[in-house]
């Protein structure tokens, strides 16, 4: 079993998330996380999908995904060749007694306080899965009341852009008839 991060450019059209999620569900592929958001191009959204490949090959998952008409491009982002981050919001118990200890932890992980009260604080942190996991471990002793975590988002290292390289503006003549023999 291995984990892979796929960056999937999709048309920004209604239903596309359902199409992708439905495909994973009906073909029994395991999703660890899925994050969707806009890209620099308003017509295109990016889905970052972390999958666990067990009984299916990564290749098979990619090929099935690629059959969806709204899916424009799929790239695997390897850890070494990409920047990957998750967002964590975590509410912990905090009193005046342990404030100082919490601050020390937050400093170590570059996390910040985004909301606080007499007996709690809500912390925001970003980073890769390992860092987020370590931070949570470090915060555990203060008492975690609630947490919300995003799926992983990732982007290729270097100056290039996936969209630039892959988006063709190739168009298909409809000929005179939709009944044209497209195959031969």
């Amino acid at each position: 079993m291995s984990t892979h991060t796929l960056s999937v450019l999709v048309e920004n059209s209604p239903g596309v998330l359902a199409r992708v999620a439905g495909l994973f569900s009906r073909r029994a592929y395991n999703i660890d996380s899925l994050a969707v958001g806009p890209t620099e191009n308003p017509d295109i959204s990016r889905m970052t999908i972390v999958i666990n490949v067990e009984s299916h090959s990564l290749e098979q998952v990619i090929r099935q995904l690629d059959k969806l008409v709204n899916v424009i491009h799929i790239a695997e982002l390897k850890l070494a060749e990409s920047v990957q981050a998750e967002l964590l919001l975590v509410k912990i118990s905090a009193t005046s007694k342990n404030r100082f200890d919490v601050d020390a932890v937050l400093e170590t992980y570059g996390a910040s306080i985004v909301d606080e009260g007499a007996d709690y604080m809500t912390i925001e942190a970003t980073g890769d899965a390992a860092k987020i996991s370590d931070l949570l471990n470090a915060l555990e002793r203060f008492g975690i009341r609630e947490l919300a975590q995003s799926g992983l988002v990732a982007i290729e290292r270097g100056s290039g852009s996936l969209a630039d390289r892959t988006l063709s503006t190739q168009s298909i003549p409809t000929a005179d008839s939709g009944q044209a023999d497209y195959q031969n």
Binding site: V69, H73, L167, S168, Q170, I172, P173, T174
Partner: peptide, 11 residues
């Protein structure tokens, strides 16, 4: 009726 179609995800 469109003369051309653009389907960036279908080739």
């Amino acid at each position: 009726y469109p003369k051309e179609l653009s389907l960036p995800g279908y080739h």
